[in-house]
Design a protein around this nucleic acid. Structure first.
Lengths: 296, 296
DNA sequence: CAGCTAGTGCAACATTTGTTGCATATCCGA
DNA sequence: TCGGATATGCAACAAATGTTGCACTAGCTG
């Protein structure tokens, strides 16, 4: 019996599983390391479930107890089936694979490498500086067109949990990019663009700089036209084995930037997030996970 | 505190260590995954030593107790530092850095790791299968709301270079998500959603599946409600040290998927791309790089 | 509505875990 | 050889672990 069999068993029986057991099952599938490394009670705590639920799940799946499930995971770890290192190693051994999966692997590997490059001290410093600037701004105008639009949009989306300070430009067909007209020196502009640079992005960034609106750039070269304008520049690679350039590093930069800006907010940030989530719940936008019952 | 530090400490003090403690110390160095996976008493048994010896060794090495040593090893396992690939990717000297850049580095590192996980054989196969399905579809409806929207949008944007087969849902306030009504069995739906799942996304995916529209899902768990519906599921991790979950792995998945779908097109795909770029140039959307002068 | 079954919460269980105070054994230098 | 320090064995500890019997509840069926 190996872990794969367990996972398959869980997936099969999942639809018919009662709520609590489902939560537990999901935790096991999603956090394989934890199963082997943490005590069962601790896992139950993290999964938001009672300890007995874990025991009962094990029995229901046909094991003697939770210990059996843990043993499975421990073996998997020893054999390097879990985690990154093991998989990387096995890939080296893997023989012929179709050209398609080979391409996929190259793309993914390239992405991981380039994103890792964002971890260089220079990049980190740039991120920190940029975050400080954005955190101090009254309003953050987010600008990205075409391939960069998703980046700017994600940044604005994350920031929307912290209040309404971030504005995404270029979303509707009416005002277009005009909203940036309201920007002043106590605002900021986050501009995202990589080669070939959208003319409109550059024009707006130029204008903003002329109005003393501080500009933070996410771009692909220190000599990019955006970098020349920006107060702080975050460099991302767009190289890719695919026919299209990759925006993944820029995406990570945006996510990181948002997290750092949030960090500047302190406790009131957390309050804002809590409020936002409460409101979303009230709107009923989310699929409801089974809530634990309390005894009356 | 790092496992390496522990090992170095043990090696240093080893010559001066009394017999029993020496046996214990040696066991720790030689059987790293046992330390994390077995109970201390069990380790003592295997090492041929009394349980207290382990405790005492921990204290002697300057730790609070054996639990501290175990925690070190658990971390090492999670980060894939143990085993063959061992110490490859780890940067040697990490000088003191501010809490802010430290957070940034953690976020970036986590992103790189999780994206690397997409390179696992399973994931690659899922990507390839999904790409084949999408490539065969007449029309690809792209659905992602809230944090997943940028993902779906980027996929649709890339695909727009290959023609007009991809349609992004939920972009305008008028038709909203309705455009999917036109989908049929020879189309496909690319649905992106991670916990907490947007109700609307699930509803639409459900409906589509009912209409025999094949569904490809990018989601965060094999037991996510989307996975239950989808023909092919691409799993991405959303874990992040930041307050917000990370969509970066999903983003990479989308980019990769688009590249693979493009690959199915063959030469006419290249022609389509060339045409698209020509048109964009005619529209003048791009900033013109200074062209190399030709000698008069 | 009653009656039933399956799911879940709760309290208590026997075990096992990691640790420590004390007693004894061993080693080393004088 | 002795004296003192150090290492080790032992017993007992509180704390935590995984499990189970019982009671209550929700949801279903007739």
């Amino acid at each position: 019996m190996d872990r794969d069999a367990l996972v398959r068993k869980i997936i099969d029986s999942f639809p018919g599983l009662p709520a609590q057991l489902g939560v537990a099952a999901r935790y096991i599938v999603d956090n394989p390391d934890d199963v082997a490394l943490l005590s069962m009670r601790e896992q139950a705590r993290r999964a938001g479930v009672q300890p007995w639920t874990m025991s009962r799940l094990a029995k229901r799946l046909g094991y003697d107890g939770y210990e059996a499930i843990r043993a499975l995971h421990a073996n998997a770890i020893r054999q390097g089936e879990l985690g990154f290192a093991g998989r990387a190693g096995r890939q080296a051994v893997r023989q012929k694979e179709s050209g398609e999966t080979a391409l996929a692997r190259d793309i993914v590997a390239a992405g991981a490498t380039q994103i890792g490059r964002l971890g260089a001290p220079d990049s980190l410093a740039a991120l920190a500086d940029a975050a400080a600037l954005l955190a101090a701004a009254r309003r953050i105008h987010c600008l990205g067109l075409r391939s960069s639009h998703a980046i700017a949009a994600q940044f604005a989306y994350i920031m929307s949990f912290l209040g309404d300070r971030a504005v995404l430009l270029g979303t509707d067909g009416f005002r277009g990019l005009d909203a940036v007209r309201m920007a002043g020196a106590d605002d900021a502009l986050l501009a995202v663009s990589v080669a070939p640079y959208s003319r409109a992005t550059l024009d707006i960034a130029h204008w903003a700089a002329g109005e003393n609106v501080p500009v933070v750039a996410i771009t692909d070269s220190p000599v990019s036209p955006l970098a020349a304008i920006a107060r702080h520049t975050i460099l991302v690679s767009t190289e890719s084995p695919s026919f299209f350039h990759s925006m993944a590093p820029a995406f990570v930069a945006a996510e990181t930037l948002a997290a750092l800006v949030a960090g500047h907010g302190g406790t009131e940030t957390l309050a804002a997030i809590a409020r936002a989530e409460q409101q979303l719940a009230a709107f009923g936008v989310h699929h409801l996970a089974p809530a634990p019952r309390t005894r009356p």
